Simulated assay, not measured.
Amino acid sequence: MTPQQQLLEWLRSSAQGDKAAFESLYQATSAKLFAVSLQLMRRRDWAEDVLQDAFIKIWHNAGDYHTEKGTVMTWMISITRYRALDLLKSRKVKAEHIELDESWMEALHTGEFTDPASDKARLEFCMEGLESDHRQSIYLAFVNGLSHQEITQYISAPLGSIKSWIRRGLAKLKRCLEA
């Protein structure tokens, strides 16, 4: 039996409520799906949440799988990716009243730069010039994707302070990057 056939058998059995088959499916695929989730989320705890949500969806929708949708693994990766993207959208933080060049915001989040050597060094230089509270708040918001409320819980600071630190930090960052 090929690996694809084995996954298909476990998925079909899972659709019939076979928990042992679902456990086998999980054991065979969870590492790969977790890697996909972690690559997108860049945070282990969020990647774990995505993986759990994905497997719940796989369990509930196992009967909806059809071979014309691609391999079982492709179908499961697709579910995992959509769950990750949904979570990222729900936790996206937008700067208040401060507009940095979109390419810089994307670079801050992804770490990908048009001129990697100079752009990354410039951004790192400007980030280092920020006060530590401002730098940490911006990093938590734009790199880790935390909401303002999540940042308040993470660093135990008032919501108003978090918003001010992000706003002031982005303004300083913008001035530095445009200099």
Rank of each mutant, 00 (worst) to 15 (best):
Y65Q: 07
S156I: 11
H97D: 15
S37K: 02
F113V: 05
R91G: 01
S78V: 08
R168M: 10
E96H: 11
E112Q: 12
S13R: 11
Q5I: 08
K120F: 04
L11W: 00
K69C: 09
P158C: 09
G145C: 02
R168L: 12
L87D: 04
A157E: 10
Y139P: 01
I98T: 10
S90K: 14
L177R: 05
W104F: 06
R135H: 00
T71D: 00
H66Q: 15
A28C: 11
E23T: 13
R91I: 01
Q149F: 10
I138C: 02
G145I: 00
R135I: 01
A141L: 00
K172Q: 14
L33W: 07
A179K: 15
G63E: 03
S147P: 01
K172W: 09
R175T: 15
E178L: 12
S118W: 09
M76W: 08
L33G: 04
H134R: 12
R83I: 06
S137C: 07
E68D: 15
T71A: 04
C126F: 02
R167D: 02
W75P: 10
K163F: 05
F142K: 00
L87M: 13
M1Y: 08
D64W: 07
T152R: 03
D119T: 05
V72H: 05
Q39L: 14
N61K: 15
W59H: 08
L123V: 04
E131K: 09
D49E: 08
T114S: 14
C126E: 04
D18G: 06
A157Q: 13
N144F: 08
A54D: 03
M76S: 05
Q149S: 11
S30L: 09
A107P: 06
R135F: 01
E178K: 12
D49F: 00
L159S: 11
R122F: 09
A117I: 13
E106T: 14
E23D: 14
K172Y: 11
A15D: 04
K172V: 08
A35F: 10
H60P: 02
A117D: 12
G63L: 05
E68N: 14
P158D: 08
M41F: 03
Y26E: 07
Q39Y: 14
T152M: 05
G169M: 03
A20V: 14
L88P: 02
F22Q: 10
T110W: 02
Q5K: 11
T71G: 06
S164M: 12
A107W: 06
S14I: 00
A47D: 04
R168E: 10
A54G: 03
Q27N: 15
Q27H: 15
G169K: 02
A157H: 10
L140K: 00
A171V: 11
L8D: 07
R175I: 13
F113R: 06
L25V: 05
G70F: 03
E96V: 12
T152I: 04
E131D: 10
G160V: 12
R122K: 15
L8H: 07
C126S: 01
L146A: 01
A141C: 01
E124I: 05
R43A: 12
T2I: 09
F142Y: 05
D115V: 12
Y65F: 13
T71K: 03
